[in-house]
Write a protein that binds this DNA or RNA. Structure first.
Length: 402
DNA sequence: GTCAATTCACATGAAAGAGACCACGGTCTAGTG
DNA sequence: CTAGACCGTGGTCTCTTTCATGTGAATTGACGA
């Protein structure tokens, strides 16, 4: 495209009628006014949290549910309203929300406490201070006046996996040392069996109340999609049956509303890019593939070289043979690759962890199997579309300059 | 043939080290009036 | 005299290694029928 052509393209782009009315509505962080199909949960949480308005400490609450079941949305919805009431009536109630999964923000004990303290208006350096010093500052920030603080820890499972459960223990105990104020904890977790690994003392005090968010079914997803699409898109741009299919797609994968919305947004973008005036079901199919491709590519490109080398060995073996790939084999091939591209090979212990990380990302599937006399190992298989493999291989080859 | 013991090839956990990054306080240095 | 540069100390964080322990079924071998 020549320079002039580029300008023409942009001008044409501006003139072109967009399918979207308000794209933001389809984004994950958009807060709709009403939360669909969570009436029971809302009621229950509201009952639990209501005493906070009288400055009585509400029970600690633990919420479970898979991704895209509306946990965060619901909690934010409720706490926004409580905060509003508290503000109107001048009640000393503070609600602090943190997503523990945010890298370099709240994924360690220090950072989490530092982040909370910052939200209370104190300045904390990103590093350099002893952790107990940060605790002290946090402490005094809370205890300097009579108030109630509700701490919401979204995706705590992630935090505990990384930083251990000591932090939760400290938080649950903090109340006994506060003189003027009190804190209440709300934990949100994607992992249903996460609490089983917790220290029983922590578990009992953290989950005084428990709530499980079930996945949405296809009908409920349709409602949610309709609610959003009405505002997000111009009229009549959705082909008949599109929402139903989209909901069915997402319902098949544990009722993930976030995914359904993303699917819809990407199909719209594809339709728009190709100059269609409405979104067809074929766009939905393409969107599904595109999302998957981008997700995997993003993961891989973001990995350091060592990790890429490990994945490369897995892919290489997989493309030769479909079944029965084991850690030992991967390690041998990986060592060869390291020599080829001048990396220092890591230990097998570490490689084993890297393989598990890829499993978590969903790039590969692993299964610990025992081959009896012939030991115990992970059986590894690729979890990505085979059509994608050659492209990924090429990307990694370039990155590693093989 | 039966059954317990053995064995393999890792998985999984815990601890600790290396190196990067950062804050803080003290000291030095150069610029200013 | 003071602002800024510089340095040492002590802290966190991430990635990694080292050491230790766990695991589950195929295989082995003793045993009895």
């Amino acid at each position: 495209m020549s320079q002039k052509g580029l300008i023409g393209y942009f001008e044409k782009f501006l003139d072109k009628e967009s399918l979207f009315d308000n794209k933001r509505i389809l984004q994950a962080n958009y807060m709709p006014e009403t939360v669909f199909h969570r009436e029971d949960e809302i009621k229950k949480i509201a009952t639990i949290l209501a005493p906070s308005l009288k400055l009585e400490k509400p029970s600690n609450l633990f919420i479970y549910g898979k991704t895209g079941t509306g946990k965060t949305l619901t909690i934010k919805h409720i706490t926004n309203q409580i905060a509003q009431v508290a503000k109107e009536k001048d009640i000393k109630l503070k609600i602090l929300y943190i997503n523990c999964k945010l890298k370099r923000v709240a994924d360690t004990e220090y950072r989490l406490i530092a982040q909370f303290t910052r939200e209370l208006g104190k300045d904390i350096p990103p590093t350099g201070l002893p952790t107990d010093e940060v605790y002290k500052i946090f402490f005094s920030a809370i205890d300097n006046e009579e108030q109630l603080v509700i701490l919401i820890l979204d995706e705590v499972d992630y935090l505990v996996k990384k930083a251990g459960d000591e932090l939760l223990y400290n938080l649950t105990r903090i109340n006994s040392e506060l003189k003027n104020s009190q804190i209440s904890l709300i934990g949100i977790s994607n992992d249903l069996i996460f609490a089983d690994h917790l220290d029983p003392r922590i578990k009992s005090s953290l989950s005084e109340e428990e709530l499980i968010f079930p996945p949405y079914n296809a009908i409920q997803l349709q409602d949610i999609l309709k609610q959003r699409t009405d505002k997000a898109f111009k009229k009549n741009v959705l082909e008949q049956g599109l929402i139903e299919k989209c909901a069915a797609f997402a319902a098949r994968e544990h009722g993930d509303a976030r995914r359904a919305l993303e699917l819809l947004r990407v199909s719209a973008e594809i339709a728009e890019r190709n100059g269609f005036s409405n979104i067809k079901i074929e766009h939905l199919d393409r969107a599904e593939r595109e999302i998957e491709k981008n997700r995997i590519q993003d993961i891989i490109v973001a990995q350091p070289k060592q990790q890429q080398a490990v994945l490369f060995s897995i892919i290489s073996i997989c493309s030769k043979r479909q079944r029965g790939i084991f850690t030992g084999e991967v390690y041998e091939v990986y060592k060869g690759i390291c020599i080829q591209c001048g990396l220092r090979p890591l230990t097998q212990r570490r490689v084993s962890d890297i393989i598990s990380e890829y499993d978590m990302f969903g790039v590969i599937n692993t299964n610990v199997i025992s081959k009896g006399r012939y030991g115990r190992t992970k059986e590894i298989s690729l979890a990505i579309d085979y059509l994608l493999v050659p492209k990924l291989k090429k990307i990694i080859e370039e990155n590693l300059s093989l």
